[in-house]
Nucleic acid binder design. Structure first.
Lengths: 202, 202
DNA sequence: AGAAACTGAATCACGATTCATTTTGGGTCG
DNA sequence: CGACCCAAAATGAATCGTGATTCAGTTTCT
């Protein structure tokens, strides 16, 4: 086995554990998930998990960082593809946030439900990936202000936070609503319009 | 001791336990709080808690219901006092939500952090008080639509949810920000204006 | 006195973590 | 090539602390 392959195999097993943890946490939440359940979900022995992660908490944090990074990269890529119009970029950000409920239901459940809980238990640890995501959102507000499209009398940090809250709560609704996939496009339209019209410079 | 006094005393001890639980949960979260910590915070023996609550989960649920009811009553009262203008009522609702961080920091932390976690572990149990609060918010949107002040092409339920998310995320920010009480009035102004302008009928 | 409320030490199930043992897999040598 | 060796990786049964809950005994009420 070459060095590259060996490192690949290692990564794969680590990834299997993260996958298993995501499934398990989504299903029962962090505190109600047994390490042995994660292990069996991942198809490894209990002890193996401790070869890749210091402990259960570390596994949670690692899972966050890994998946948030994925979400952030996806958002950045899609925003780059969409051009310069702040309105259009904003709309796309909203749509992608909601789309997570369809594309990655487990991840969606994990993020919406466990983020705060962990924000708490990580009181000292400053969840940096979450802050990156917030920065992306308030960056949109800031850009809109610079372009003169958005009103200048609001703080981007505050609004970014409010927007994140709104998006995440709707994502939670989508994630848990048993009702057949409500129309993501229409929900995107409504939420986008409210914020864009509210933010627009007069 | 009269019947009224006895019931009062009982209520008091129950209330002491709820208070202790609130403090403890706010400090360390539900899963990291020991029943014995709640007991000592409340000044009762461990076993006494089980005379008033079936188990730790039941204590959590009871605490939710009790405190959310208080929050809802407070909001209803204040909205009644404020008159018919939807804009003014909306502004007041936002302000009261944020004000919780100042008035009741423990409760604020408890609600912002534990609500989702519990929404999860109460998957079957339909947190009715939380739904009442949502209903109050989408009721504002609906009223605005009926009065022709707000646009009719959005679903109140969706917007109520988005608004709750925005408010709660900002409340979280206020609750955890060590920075000296940021200006609640100014934050209220900004968030209120965005939503009202976004919702306004054209 | 009798009931109700309360107490807190003891129980007991649970589950994260450890570690002695086994398996794997590539490198070396005859 | 096959036998052998070693280190790294993996295993999973046993350990061990923890903490929710119980309940026999005590205190407080009426």
């Amino acid at each position: 086995m070459s060095q590259a392959d060996k490192s690949r195999a290692t990564t794969d097993k680590r990834e299997r554990i993260l996958d298993g943890a995501l499934k398990a946490f989504a299903r029962k939440g962090f505190y109600n998930t047994k390490v042995s359940e994660i292990a069996s979900e991942a198809g490894v022995a209990d002890g193996t998990i401790y070869l890749y992660f210091k402990n259960k908490d570390d596994l949670l944090i690692s899972l966050f960082e890994d998946r948030m990074e994925w979400v952030i990269d996806r958002l950045k890529t899609e925003l780059d593809a969409v051009g310069d119009s702040v309105e259009e970029r904003f709309r796309r950000a909203v749509e992608l946030h909601f789309q997570l409920a369809i594309d990655e239901p487990d991840l969606s459940e994990f993020i919406t439900v466990e983020l705060r809980q962990s924000a708490k238990f990580m009181k000292e640890y400053k969840n940096p990936k979450f802050l990156d995501y917030l920065r992306l959102l308030d960056g949109l507000v800031e850009d809109g202000q610079k372009q003169g499209v958005f009103r200048a009398d609001v703080e981007p940090r505050l609004l970014g936070r409010a927007i994140f809250g709104a998006l995440d709560e709707v994502l939670l609704l989508l994630t848990f609503s048993r009702s057949p996939n409500r129309d993501v496009a229409e929900m995107t339209r409504q939420v986008t319009e409210i914020f864009i019209d509210g933010l627009r410079a007069r």
